[in-house]
Design a protein around this nucleic acid. Sequence first.
DNA 1: GTCTATATGACGATAGAC
DNA 2: GTCTATCGTCATATAGAC
Lengths: 236, 236
Amino acid sequence: MTAEPLSQPAPDRRQRRRQETIEEVLDIAVEIMATDGVAGLSLGEVARRMGIRPPSLYVYFPSKLALYDALFARGARQVHDVMAEAYGRMLEEATSFEDYLYTTSATYIRWRVSHPVYSQLLYWRPVPGFTPSEEAYAPAVAMVQQAIGVFREMQQRGWLRDDVPAEDIFRDWTVITSGVSSQQMSNAPDESFEQGRFTSALPGLVAMFIRHYGASPTPATVRRHGNVAKRTARKR
Amino acid sequence: MTAEPLSQPAPDRRQRRRQETIEEVLDIAVEIMATDGVAGLSLGEVARRMGIRPPSLYVYFPSKLALYDALFARGARQVHDVMAEAYGRMLEEATSFEDYLYTTSATYIRWRVSHPVYSQLLYWRPVPGFTPSEEAYAPAVAMVQQAIGVFREMQQRGWLRDDVPAEDIFRDWTVITSGVSSQQMSNAPDESFEQGRFTSALPGLVAMFIRHYGASPTPATVRRHGNVAKRTARKR
DNA sequence: GTCTATATGACGATAGAC
DNA sequence: GTCTATCGTCATATAGAC
């Protein structure tokens, strides 16, 4: 019948405090991986930078692999959220397939090159013995499904060829986006998205892709979504 | 004045024996990295599999990083040699830019997906603190220069647009080849080049690339190198 | 060139006191 | 939830005998 004594914080407050500590561990882990490599993460170094002793970390993570899994989950959720926002917004705002494709893929590539640690953990699997759990991986699956759904919508708008399955067109586009990200991070990791020697090739690659996969607009499409005539293939 | 005693082998023979041991170390190191990850290589495990003790390895490599450097050099030289052969042969045999581009890039991607360990070491740098020496890196530089030179030759043959620098066109093409390699190794590393879900997209990507960067053949070009009319952009 | 012995240290993880 | 103490393992690397 009495209120919670001050020395025993309410469960939700304790929970929140715990979550804050977990976030701090993840932040510091990312910092360490940025300098020592993804596989160079060590619990001792995390504890040292937090000003605690290594065994205390086991209150929050049962093992080092569990920490990697939490990092994977965090990265997958972040990129999912960023892309879900971009997909949704551009579905409303895009005036052409070129507009849609450039904006969303620039968002994706910018995230990857500005989060190289997550990018390596999520896409390159450099940690021996670590495989992400199904829960951690789920946002990545959702992101792909949403992206394919948007490509289908593009086909229905008449912005995209519909004689090829949306899955295949999307697969080809992932080759481009992952190629730009990979080349930029491998060859010039210190260049920003704006000045990168590979990221700056993106507009040209979008144009190439649309010349191949873009559909000629019907008059109805033009009326609904504006003039996209510039996308039409030039005769050589 | 006397011949070399049997217990003191001639210097060249000793040298050869030494080189054989070095090659064995490299072979076993690759085996270990294939299962334990590139960063999971350990000298103790190498020694165990060779049936020797860890200190004996220091006769051949002064440090673990030196071993990584030798592995990098070996991989860079291998892919250089494979590609130099392909470039040279296709310069003579190719009947079209499509023919040239598909064959050489298939060679490159096949090497990468069938040598995932070297591919990670050369392109993803997963080892904390390791940077390849200039000598080890040299074949990679030579390979890029040769490839750009071939693209220039393609421009002179009239197979490739010459209103864009060969360097830029080649950069765009590396985005495609590294994208296919990266996606295939990340998402389905156990699929072969022939049946891979991304590698099998290569012909379509070649077609897309040529639709954008291919040049219309002049009559003289056709006379010299055969009919390439099929590469001409279709009117939509 | 190979060995034994050893220096030196990090690592992940657990037990149990407070 | 944090600590001390510790276990067990493995690592790279060196010294010096044979």
